[in-house]
Amino acid sequence: MSIPNHAQEAQDRYFMMLAIQQAKQGLYTTRPNPAVGCVIVRAESVVGQGFHPKAGQPHAEVFALQDAGASAVGGTAYVTLEPCSHTGRTPPCALGLIDAGIKRVVIAGLDPNPQVAGRGVKLLEDAGIEVTVGILTDQAEALNRGFLKAMRTQMPYVRLKIATSLDGRTAMASGESKWITSAQAREDVQKLRALSGAIITGSETIIADDPQLNVRSTQLCVSADQVPTPKVVVLDRRQRLQYDPKSNYQLCRQSEVLYWREDDLVKLLKRLVSDHQCYDVLVEAGAGVAGSFLKQQLVDELIVYQAPCLLGIKARPMVEFSPLSLAQQLRLDICAHEKIGPDLKLTLQPL
């Protein structure tokens, strides 16, 4: 396995970026598999490209090799994640690259999945193929934060979404909250749901708002019916809700909803990974649930949609969190900010 040299790096970065663009086409449809892209290059020209569209279907390398045909012989394959070395629902991609006559493989990052974890690289190198690892690794890993974290830690990547006023309020004292933020912001939330294997909410939110918590956007790069349905989890320690086909609440009429009656959120998150292969989790809930996830340091990413309005001191806070001193404050890093319609979207990570 070689480290990229300066002479090749600019070219490798260019073609790996093309592979990342391919991978993005499967971003909403591949769960629980990672989104992966592949580009085949020969004589500095792209001769084949492909992406993994859905679990159970061929991987990116297969589509790229089919696209390249005989032109793949002697070429270089750029892949956003280490080619698999095991037989699952599809054959090993590393063997496919070997059989196609590829002479060099450039990989953004290794696959931490224990079934792969360097074995794909070893297969390629044992076949005499030159392998380069470490091109645009951060950009490629950003596509699969949940999958990679779950493979490394058995915990999912947790995003907490909050819609708030300028003064940090999420609802009036009465509970009225529809709608603080704009239709554009709510449409953007659909992308977060489409990325998620599971959506966690609280029983209070169900009772107050009767949400659907589904993916129904018409503005994704794919139709909503192609997106795997996120598993809804309702935190309900007081056992106020249950499955009932005649319930007044939409989610309670769905038998697939999971009701979590325990206090242990870590146990829940681990179970979502081990039992349900939910690697990306979105928390859409009230101040109490949001505060619990933040206080227990279970949030990887906080997304705040802030509307340019003021709801006043009697309105409900965005998080139930009561530090006694500045030393106990929760500090966050602003990773990105953008305007969504009239609202401000902040993406933050706890420090």
Rank of each mutant, 00 (worst) to 15 (best):
R240W: 13
R216I: 03
I340C: 11
K161P: 00
G56H: 09
A150T: 09
V41Y: 08
M1S: 12
M1Y: 15
L294A: 08
G120K: 07
E284T: 09
V36Y: 12
L27Y: 15
Q297D: 12
L65D: 09
D167A: 01
P53N: 08
C278P: 13
P350H: 06
G26N: 11
F293G: 05
R31Q: 14
E9P: 01
L311R: 01
P114N: 03
M172T: 03
I162W: 07
S196V: 07
D244T: 05
Q21C: 13
T132M: 03
A35R: 08
K24H: 13
Q25L: 09
Q349N: 11
G101N: 10
R193H: 09
C221R: 05
Q25W: 00
R316Y: 01
I199N: 12
L330W: 12
A43Y: 10
F321I: 00
P323I: 06
C221E: 03
D67F: 13
V283L: 01
T153I: 00
A224K: 14
R186V: 01
I207N: 12
M155A: 05
P4A: 04
R331S: 14
G175T: 04
S255K: 15
I98R: 12
Q115E: 06
Q254T: 08
Q297E: 10
G168Y: 02
R253L: 02
D225L: 00
Q277L: 11
A55E: 04
V232S: 05
F51S: 11
A173H: 11
R216C: 10
R216Q: 09
R145C: 03
K231N: 06
V273S: 11
D244S: 14
L272V: 09
Q212K: 14
L235E: 01
E301D: 04
A150Q: 04
S45R: 15
Y279Q: 04
L310M: 02
L235I: 13
E130D: 12
P34C: 02
E61W: 11
Y28D: 01
D275N: 14
L272R: 06
Q25C: 05
Q154G: 08
G168N: 03
Q328I: 07
Q154A: 09
A142F: 13
H59E: 09
A198L: 04
V133G: 08
G197R: 11
G96A: 10
G312Y: 02
A35M: 07
G134L: 02
L302K: 07
T229E: 10
R331G: 11
A140P: 15
A77F: 09
V41H: 07
I20A: 10
V121P: 09
R13Q: 05
A150V: 03
A35H: 07
V215W: 07
D236E: 01
S177H: 03
E204G: 15
D333N: 15
C335Q: 15
L346I: 06
D236S: 04
R316K: 14
T87V: 02
V73C: 13
S325P: 13
V131P: 12
L97K: 09
Q226E: 05
K191R: 14
G202R: 12
C309T: 13
E301Q: 14
P211C: 04
R145K: 15
L311M: 07
